[in-house]
């Protein structure tokens, strides 16, 4: 072994203990509060997608960070944990970014907003797919 004195688990536990309970309950209040804020925010701003998106993602990120930092003890762990998690997060971002050009960027639709697909279906098939379509039936 090296000459390093390393904390035994019980010593670490003692250290935990001093700051243990109070922050956990505080974190709990924070999480509950943030969930409430999310709920109100989402209900109030449901018609403004970009504002909704930015705000909610920020709130979710804060909540996730609180869980990871306090409950998952990232606060107490060494840097090695990041060696495992950060590559995964990096690859996660790479994967999603690489999917965007092929899947998220749809070719511009020349015929306007409402048109989804090219083939024009017959009325018969339309009626088969949409049973209650009051099309050519007597109203």
């Amino acid at each position: 072994m090296t000459d390093t004195r390393v904390l035994s688990p019980s010593e670490v536990a003692e250290e935990h203990q001093q700051e243990a309970h109070a922050p956990y309950l505080m974190v709990w209040l924070w999480l509950a509060g943030l969930t409430g804020i999310e709920y109100v925010y989402a209900a109030g701003l449901k018609d403004f997608f970009l504002i909704l998106l930015g705000g909610l993602l920020a709130l979710a990120a804060i909540k996730a960070a609180l869980v990871a930092w306090y409950f998952m003890h990232l606060k107490f762990e060494g840097k090695w944990v990041y060696l495992l998690i950060l590559p995964a997060l990096f690859l996660a971002v790479v994967l999603v970014l690489a999917l965007i050009p092929d899947l998220a960027m749809q070719p511009a639709d020349p015929e306007g907003d409402h048109v989804r697909v090219e083939p024009v279906r017959s009325d018969v098939e339309m009626a088969r797919r949409i049973p209650m379509l009051a099309t050519d039936r007597p109203a």
């Binding site: 000459d3 390093t4 250290e15 060494g78 840097k79 090695w80």
Partner: peptide, 29 residues
Amino acid sequence: DAVGPKPGSAGVRHAPVPSHSAPVTPGKV
């Protein structure tokens, strides 16, 4: 429950000061 210095953390190995980090165990890794 083996106790050892953290991987990739030179600071622990060189400094004899007790670290605030939790111990590294195979289970945790």
